[in-house]
């Protein structure tokens, strides 16, 4: 409890500190270059000068935070990836050479590609289906809310939930995991799902799909509602049935949004770590890049060079999406 009060105290200090910074720095600027005064021409000149400085006052803390926590690490990671485990001695590209020859890395890369293929497609697909269907029924909003719910659950929490579903007991014992219960009910043999190589990847992906479908649904649903009603009505008059309307009229109008959803989930997939850590910790051939990096970072004293090299690979994979995003944002701003 005491800790909580202490935390609240820091919140107050932090907020007051931040607000104070903005207020005081602004005040100083206004005092040095007064914008009001007997001589309006001079005041105007002061205002123009102050307007050159003020944006940077407003931006400074944010730029500092972005610089320290995101920009510097990217540069530093590249630098570290060219050094040995302690980060002291330059080793050139040997970390990358090691990586290419490392079966663990190849396995992770393969699994990551698998994730990239399956999860965005599945989540977007389910999301689109859910969006299209829930918009047509009276209890659609409740349904949406429930499908959206896993979004609030942590990856670790979701992992526990699904581990419970995949729970395995020896044949003959009562199965308390619902998947094995169903399998035995249909007369099959219970399986230890998470230990079946290759296929266990899919059992992990299900979790992320389960979490992300709601996200896809919410955004695609808004996009579907943004479609001008007239185009749909025109299609009805042209004799199209609901399925034709969906695929021939609605879908083509929301391609842009589908792409946004797809790429957003793709980025998430590249960073996926918690689920693998909690479910299998990379055992049974389920390793992925982010977890592999974490392994090299901390297990056995840590190898910063190799960890950083893997981080750089993740970054490189993200760059195309980054470029695409920036272009899209620029185009949007020009259209403003």
């Amino acid at each position: 409890m005491q800790q909580l009060f202490w935390a609240l105290g820091t919140v107050v200090i932090g907020v007051v500190g931040c607000a104070g910074y903005f207020y005081v720095s602004n005040l100083v600027l206004d005092t040095l270059l007064p914008g009001r005064g007997p001589d309006p021409v001079r005041a105007g000149r002061n205002i123009n000068r102050a307007n050159l400085i003020r944006p940077w006052l407003f931006l400074a803390p944010a730029i500092l935070a972005l610089g320290i926590y995101l920009v510097y690490p990217v540069i530093e990671s590249v630098w570290l990836s060219l050094h040995d485990r302690s980060g002291q001695n330059f080793v050139g590209l040997s970390n990358y050479v090691w990586m290419l020859n490392d079966p663990g890395f190849r396995e992770s890369m393969f699994n990551n590609m698998l994730w990239l293929l399956v999860v965005p497609a599945a989540a977007t697909g389910f999301g689109l289906a859910a969006a299209a269907l829930t918009d047509r029924i009276w209890w659609g909003n409740i349904a949406k809310s429930l499908i959206f719910m896993p979004m609030a659950i942590s990856f670790v929490g979701a992992s526990v939930i699904w581990k419970f579903i995949y729970d395995y007991r020896a044949p003959g014992e009562p199965q308390i995991g619902i998947l094995n219960a169903l399998v035995t009910w249909f007369g099959g043999d219970p399986q230890a799902w998470l230990t079946i190589p290759f296929w266990n990847n899919f059992f992990l992906m299900v979790i992320l799909v389960w979490i992300q479908t709601g996200f896809a649904m919410v955004i695609l649903s808004a996009a579907l509602r943004g479609i001008p009603e007239e185009t749909v009505e025109a299609a009805v008059l042209d004799g199209a049935n609901p399925i034709q309307i969906f695929f021939r009229i609605k879908m083509p109008q929301i391609w842009g949004t589908i792409a946004v959803v797809w790429t957003t989930i793709t980025i998430l997939v590249l960073k996926v770590f918690d689920i693998v850590l909690a479910m299998t910790n990379g055992q049974w051939r389920t390793q992925v890049l982010a977890n592999l990096m974490f392994d090299w970072m901390f297990r056995g004293g840590g190898d910063f060079g190799r960890g950083a090299a893997i981080a750089v690979v993740i970054m490189v994979l993200v760059i195309p999406i980054m470029v695409w995003n920036i272009r899209r944002a620029n185009a949007e701003m020009k259209g403003h």
């Binding site: 926590y69 510097y72 570290l80």
Partner: peptide
């Protein structure tokens, strides 16, 4: 916009 997608993992070691 670019930094929006920088993987967190990049930042950890540095």
């Amino acid at each position: 916009v670019g930094l929006l997608v920088v993987p967190l993992q990049m930042s950890l070691i540095p």
